[in-house]
Design a protein around this nucleic acid. Structure first.
Lengths: 177, 177
DNA sequence: AGAATAAGTGGGGTGGCACCCCGGTTAACT
DNA sequence: AGTTAACCGGGGTGCCACCCCACTTATTCT
């Protein structure tokens, strides 16, 4: 990959992050190209479609989430560690609001960044399961899909998302199995 | 309202339901108008924008859901009644797939149909709470937003949506309060 | 260093979309 | 039957995603 191409790619991802944060995931790709200072053709050549671009944006913002999972590995309370991490995830998704819908789709295509999040989260989930706090039949994919849904349905309201997540963790009808 | 206007309105809602079921909520409004056999201007005059049209579609498909809530009023097991109804809701949302995102927005605008669903569901929820099956701090709005999120995140996969709903009802970490 | 080459670029074109204007049409009422 | 006001849809505008192709530029080889 040529140096200028890489530089342009980074400009575009940065511009996309900026515009998406302002206008949501439906923002005009031309506007993004304009703000990155490149032609729209360049953007379309680098990223086949909108989804690929959004994935790149998301990917560039994931490092922190994965690092946080790493830190929480050694938390004395596995369930609490998982809970904290899930809250962080929901908050993160709400922060990059609007990316959500596109990412549900990309999850089905097994995108790279989802694999990374999944393995980061699996660690915490399995610790909580070994501990007996979480039933063994809970799957990391289900969990991630669920928090995605929570973040999605809450729009940009991070507090509401956090509250709904608490509900999900505790359960609507916790007394029953 | 003139007879022809009403007739056209019904044609458009029917066409919209059809096209949305096929292509999702992002379907072309012109395609909908085309299939309804009216000009696109007519569609735009009747429904200011896409959301209003989708609301009309959703509204026309709600009667069944509300009726079901009415039936379940007298179910001997309040929690089971609520659970059955929620599953029905998720299935219904999955059926009219793609309407979801638009309806999250319209919920914020307090649309008519949401009010109706809310009051239908509140009945079942309150019965389950009086029974002690569901904690008192669970809110009907939270519940509906949550199942909306579940349906949203599951895409068109109704089985997956049902599974995730079970998880939500039971809770990720049911042992803890 | 300079030439050859392959990768990268963006102006401009195409087709489709949401949304609107306005002259013709038609239902409803007298 | 005649009047009126509501309704209709062809066609226009401006924006968008996406693509083609002649031009530019980094890289490589001698």
């Amino acid at each position: 990959m040529r140096a200028d191409a890489r530089r342009n790619r980074e400009l575009m991802v940065a511009a996309a992050a900026e515009v998406v944060a302002e206008q949501g995931a439906e923002a005009s790709l031309e506007e993004i190209a304009r703000r990155a200072g490149v032609g729209s053709a360049t953007l379309h050549r680098h990223f086949g479609g909108r989804v690929a671009l959004l994935e790149a944006v998301f990917e560039s913002s994931i490092a922190g989430v994965c690092a946080r999972a790493e830190e929480l590995r050694d938390h004395p309370e596995p369930l609490q560690a998982l809970t904290i991490w899930l809250h962080g995830m929901v908050g993160h998704i709400a922060t990059v609001h609007g990316l959500g819908p596109a990412l549900v789709m990309s999850a089905e295509h097994g995108s790279q960044c989802h694999v990374r999040i999944r393995s980061a989260g699996r660690l915490l989930l399995e610790r909580a399961q070994a501990d007996g706090s979480v039933p063994a039949d809970v799957d990391i994919s289900d969990l991630l899909t669920l928090i995605n849904g929570v973040a999605l349905a809450s729009g940009q309201d991070a507090d509401r998302a956090g509250h709904l997540l608490d509900l999900v963790i505790r359960g609507i009808a916790p007394a029953q199995a």
